[in-house]
């Protein structure tokens, strides 16, 4: 068998996936892209033709570009929070020997992924509502007199989105930390470095690939998330995903929604590619 035919046989293995993705992801995406360039009539219905006006609106109206900026900052904040919160959990998980306890801990970590985002988000709504658990504890303990407006607040959005996306940071971090050669820690210790120094000089630098992977996954997901911030923060929360949802469900301006979606997609792709690429280059320089 020649090398070429072998390569084509390899392609055969991924053919079902290619067909699936083309039909159900790529084709709709291209249609959405075409829609974003269609002019609209007085009732916002798409017409045949070509216009850049929707992208013009997205880039000039603060309602849209402000949302993009806000989304970008929120996604960065959530990614940072997720990595910070995930690190200790992943460290604990990776440090345990394989066994029942580790399996149980790992299932607990990924269990949020087993329930729907909507269900988990309603959990937050229940917790944060006017007479929810959080408010009752705060009022009951005398910390505040009146129930606080927790829902529809920005902190509530950040907290709930962080919670929803946390497993996506824990999983790659656990893999990265679990793959570290334990002898490196021992080497560091015999050379006189205590646990803290060993952690900072050996564990953290060598777990950076996991940190970057986790941060990028969480960032990309946070850029597009809308159900959780919509339910917790309300439709006025200025996130791009909610703005798209709003354009589709209440304004019925599909082309603008499509243009905003693509602007969001491009920003996400650009920032993840740049960050990932920069890290790859840095890594290559570091390890030689």
């Amino acid at each position: 068998m020649t090398r070429a035919t072998r390569r084509w046989r390899g392609a055969g293995y991924v053919l079902p996936l290619v067909v699936f993705l083309t039909a159900l992801f790529l084709v709709p995406l291209v249609q959405l892209l075409r829609l974003s360039f269609n002019p609209v009539d007085a009732y916002n219905a798409a017409l045949p033709g070509f216009t850049l006006s929707h992208y013009g609106r997205v880039l000039t109206e603060p309602y849209f570009y402000g949302a993009l900026l806000h989304t970008l900052l929120t996604a960065v904040l959530v990614a940072v929070l997720c990595v910070l919160l995930a690190y200790p959990a992943a460290y604990l998980l990776a440090g345990r020997r394989p066994g029942t306890l580790r399996t149980v801990l790992f299932v607990i970590v990924i269990s949020p992924l087993l329930t729907s985002v909507v269900v988990r988000t309603y959990g937050w709504v229940v917790l944060l509502s006017g007479n929810g658990v959080v408010n009752r504890v705060l009022v009951g303990s005398g910390l505040i007199d009146q129930p606080a407006q927790l829902l529809t607040s920005y902190p509530a959005v950040v907290v709930s989105v962080t919670h929803v996306l946390l497993p996506f940071a824990i999983i790659p971090l656990t893999t990265a930390l679990g793959g570290l050669d334990h002898n490196l820690h021992r080497a560091s210790q015999t050379l006189g470095a205590g646990p803290v120094r060993t952690f900072l000089r050996v564990t953290v630098p060598l777990s950076l690939p996991g940190v970057v992977t986790g941060a990028l996954i969480v960032f990309a997901l946070a850029m597009g998330i809308y159900i959780t911030p919509l339910l917790v923060g309300g439709v006025t929360e200025p996130l791009a995903g909610i703005r798209v949802y709003d354009q589709v469900t209440t304004v019925f301006d599909y082309p603008v929604a499509a243009a905003l979606s693509f602007a969001l997609l491009v920003i996400t792709l650009l920032s993840t590619t740049l960050l990932g690429g920069a890290f790859r280059i840095w890594e290559r320089r570091l390890y030689g």
């Binding site: 050669d181 002898n183 560091s188 210790q189 470095a193 390890y287």
Partner: peptide
């Protein structure tokens, strides 16, 4: 005493060099 207070050298079967440091930095670590 913990390992880092014993002042002993240890050489491993798999070398266990710090991959993110140069040869000189590895030697300088301790």
């Amino acid at each position: 005493l913990p390992p880092y207070r014993r002042g002993l050298g240890l050489v491993f079967q798999n070398y266990a060099l710090f991959p993110h440091m140069t040869v000189a930095d590895n030697v300088a670590y301790g």
